[in-house]
Design a protein around this nucleic acid. Structure first.
Lengths: 251, 251
DNA sequence: CGTAACATTGAGGCACTTCAATGCGGGTGG
DNA sequence: CCACCCGCATTGAAGTGCCTCAATGTTACG
């Protein structure tokens, strides 16, 4: 068998999202937000806003897929569970990313907030109708799906064939890339500051490892002066070159 | 580090597909084939046919993505490699499945024939143009991408969190499903006949295991009378119920 | 300042891999 | 048609990377 992280009672503690989501929801949200370019005008007409607190659940695997979301702020996780509680995080979802772009009518994973988060919500029916009527829009979402599929396939290579240290290296590099692109935060000596909003348990379930292994590997990277830790959730990448080597050939 | 199957010289032995593909290729292929429903008429206008022999390579990771394909006959594999030769099969591609549905302009994996195969080929430019002009068509391919993404995410759970025996059980069940749907071949005593066109090495790289582990697990299933082997590549599933149990909870 | 949740560290075990024979089936050439 | 051979599959024995179990350290929060 393997590790079973029966973690999900956690998420249950928080009140269910659907009962209180439109905390501050005007019909036309004040946020135009999102990925740089302004949102399609028609899309904005059917949008509403959802706020989630840390560890709150947005939706569960198996729920009717009534809505499509785009993240405006915060980090979420897509979670799949085995009957015995083993957990897999299929992806982390960041600002700009979409949730629920599917043609199936139940969600195939749960979505939980890693940090406080704000999302824009579209009723799926109307969202689909808009796609149908707007080829350009459809095309852009088609492209999004393609990217996501490619990313998922890369992760299959990681999960199927990479060692624990290679997995962690790949993960940290990805997070660093993201950090460089958005904040671009650096230390004076050229280190890349990387926020890790998720817990070690989340990282473990994302990489198909255990908490302990992740923790040990982080300690090892620190001992090798490849990273330093400011807090448990904030690392500084000192030697990106070495991490890059590690990400495809074991240490 | 793990297993490294430097397997791909094999594929190289055979003459390159692109040099000889239109073996029997009229401009308008005689095959209407494919997934039950007849192919979109306009699509058929731009189609040509490609034949591949066993172990031949259709295209390589990194090649310019000039074509979109649909499989008419045979089984192929999508292969990703790490620099040191470790191999991952991201998916097997069966009759009806598509290859190269992406928005990126290089392929993100190699495609190799597991068995002799016949494919229908569309120039990507024109294929894209058709999608743009035909919302219904675009929509149906959007749906295909969604399905594929969902399947890939299930495989992430398998690779990240399932034990070796669970992985094999899941795989055999999937193959059995497929077999039931298409041929529906059964033995007189209710066993499901399942063809495994791929080698143990392929199965191993598909499940993130080694050849030896796959072989041992198959032997164990045989000892438990859950399956029998007619040939190495043809198993009979005797106790589907037990396999189903195994697929999500270790033996 | 105490406590609870998370992270780290250590010791030991096990599932899967690695390395190494041995078996087996299918094709080929004598 | 048979003997040989080659590639693949199977089986065994030994090694190891990661997991499990358990204790200790650390941080956030009342």
């Amino acid at each position: 068998m393997t590790q079973a992280l029966a973690y999900q009672e956690k998420a249950r503690i928080a009140p269910v999202a659907s009962q209180r989501e439109p905390v501050s929801t005007p019909r036309k949200p004040a946020l135009h937000i999102v990925g740089g370019q302004s949102v399609n005008a028609q899309l904005q007409q059917i949008a509403s806003v959802v706020h989630l607190e840390r560890e709150e659940t947005l939706l569960d695997e198996g729920d009717p897929a009534d809505h499509v979301y785009q993240v405006a702020r915060g980090t979420l996780r897509a979670v799949k569970l085995l009957p015995d509680g083993r957990r897999c995080i299929t992806k982390f979802i960041h600002a700009g990313d979409h949730v629920g772009l599917s043609q199936v009518d139940t969600y195939s994973f749960s979505i939980e907030a890693v940090t406080d988060a704000t999302l824009v919500r579209y009723p799926r029916r109307r969202f689909q109708a808009l796609l149908q009527s707007d080829a350009k829009l459809m095309h852009s979402f088609y492209a999004i799906m393609c990217d996501e599929l490619a990313a998922t396939q890369d992760r299959m290579l990681l999960l199927g064939r990479k060692s624990a240290s290679e997995r962690l290296a790949s993960f940290l590099l990805n997070m660093a890339m993201r950090s460089v692109k958005s904040e671009g935060a650096m230390t004076e000596d050229g280190g890349i500051i990387v926020e890790l909003p998720m817990s070690r348990a989340d990282i473990a379930d994302y990489l198909g490892l255990t908490i302990e292994t992740v923790s040990r590997l982080i300690s090892k990277l620190r001992a090798q002066r490849i990273i330093t830790l400011r807090k448990a959730q904030e690392i500084v990448l000192l030697r990106r070159d070495l991490l890059e080597e590690m990400s495809e050939a074991a240490a």
